[in-house]
Design a protein around this nucleic acid. Structure first.
Lengths: 228, 228
DNA sequence: TTAAAAATATGATAATTATCAGTTTTTGAG
DNA sequence: CTCAAAAACTGATAATTATCATATTTTTAA
């Protein structure tokens, strides 16, 4: 099994503040698993008992609305940690995590991380900064959801995908989302998302081949996102 | 000037984990000010250099969207602290705080709180829990904004006002919001908010006299909030 | 390989929400 | 108290978005 000291996850977030001996201890007790596309990593209401490190793959983090529709809160790439929040306040999960590609995920039991929280102030502080940053993003998302049109939100989402996941060798966005997932990110009906994507394609803002999306006119997309 | 040890703010949040001597130190260096209804406490982009404790009154925390409309992210009652996030990550304010009633606010300089963050792990942990809780609320708000109709959101907002601010002696909600503020909380046009409030009144869900709102049929309001 | 299922796409229409225009009511400064 | 400004309200209409129906394409599993 891979060691935490070399893991990509360790380089990209709060875990980077852990000492070598702390990492060794965690490495010894972690479990690793492969998750297939579509599989649920954890669901709303579950007791997590630890955090998940994403070594490879992408998952969506979502929540059911009382209307019975899924809202995707964010997409999580390799190198990230899931479940920190449930760890901190010891509540059941408020969100659901589902693989949207095949993934490799490590699980670190609650007690191990908690012990670091208590002993390593740098780690706590780093976690605090991560949360502050997440909170800022969440506030900005609230503003967008409340004030922007579906078209603006779609444009913005495409720009975010580019920033977070980049392109593969063919200048195709390195993430494959179903039209339904796209709709559930921007909070609209699947048909509306499809229509707007077609419109963007017709207007030469993007190209579309199935789930392969390329952005070809970033300035235009930015203008659309701001309401022009 | 009032002392921090007896302040209501101290009893309701992370500050409660501070020791007596820490509170005394803060008490000595804090400044206190009266803020009139409508006054801005801080604006987006400002460097805060400290946190604000609300001894009395209510303020709104909002952000301008690129469409030029204000979105109110939350309402903050006495006993709360503002600006913790800018403190943690040392960034300029992402949000604007405006008094919606006359207020009394204390300001604690950044260095004083930072010193507690570094020395008192209970305080850091408490702040972490607060942030985790805020983040959960923010995620739920995103779902509501993205998936619920304006009518559902208005119903939910009224229920939230009741939970957060309660009633005065005449069974009137203990917060006075303009119709524009109500619209900016639920993310709609002022006229739409007015129309829906009138509809709720006609349907005997609430009573309305100017800014005095009473909820008279909570079960019905809950049903509306869930889409029935 | 092929049939069934799922996903994508498109049209027609309904429902929701925003915008504009104008009126009435309330508020607050002098 | 008075009057001008702001806020609240109402109607008409336009724009956006959802829903339903159905066709086409893609994917999946046997």
């Amino acid at each position: 099994m891979a060691k935490c000291e070399q893991c990509i996850v360790k380089q990209l977030n709060s875990l980077k503040t852990l000492t070598k001996s702390e990492l060794l201890r965690i490495s010894a007790c972690k479990t690793s698993q492969f998750v297939k596309k579509g599989d649920v990593i954890f669901d709303e209401g579950e007791h997590l008992n630890g955090v998940f490190c994403i070594s490879s793959g992408i998952c969506k983090v979502s929540k059911m609305s009382s209307n019975g529709r899924e809202q995707i809160i964010h997409l999580v790439n390799k190198g990230s940690i899931l479940g920190e929040r449930s760890l901190v306040n010891d509540e059941v999960a408020n969100l659901k995590a589902t693989a949207i590609s095949d993934m490799e995920v490590c699980f670190i039991p609650r007690e191990e991380i908690i012990s670091d929280l208590k002993k390593n102030p740098d780690f706590t502080m780093s976690l605090l900064k991560d949360m502050a940053s997440s909170l800022k993003n969440a506030d900005n998302t609230i503003v967008d959801m409340a004030q922007k049109t579906v078209k603006q939100r779609l444009a913005e989402m495409l720009l975010n995908l580019e920033a977070s996941f980049g392109y593969n060798s063919d200048h195709v966005l390195d993430i494959h989302l179903s039209r339904e997932d796209i709709a559930n990110i921007i909070g609209t009906a699947t048909e509306s998302a499809i229509r707007l994507l077609s419109e963007f394609k017709k207007d030469n803002v993007i190209t579309l081949k199935g789930k392969n999306i390329s952005i070809i006119d970033i300035p235009k997309l930015k203008k659309i996102a701001q309401g022009f």
